[in-house]
Amino acid sequence: MSEIKVDRVVDARGSHCPGPLMELIKTIRNAKIGEVIAVYSTDSGSKTDIPRWVEKAGHQLIGVYEREGYTEFIVKKVK
């Protein structure tokens, strides 16, 4: 897999449902189209909520990765 260039990192570890999603939304609003955002989350709800929101909002979920003790979501702002 080729290396993904991440433009912004949202470290929402320790924040609870729906905190990481809310932080992603705030960040994506301030981002430019084409920017790639990584969200770190320890909240179980993020695993369903972030992909669902990304789909609904029309952005692109590049990947979901299980890291050591947290989950990383890579999202591209497409509009």
Binding site: C17, P18, L21, M22, I25, D49, W53, K56, A57
Partner: peptide, 11 residues
């Protein structure tokens, strides 16, 4: 509070 937050997040 959580339902209100979730709802705004989902538009």
């Amino acid at each position: 509070a959580i339902l209100a937050s979730g709802a705004t997040a989902m538009g």
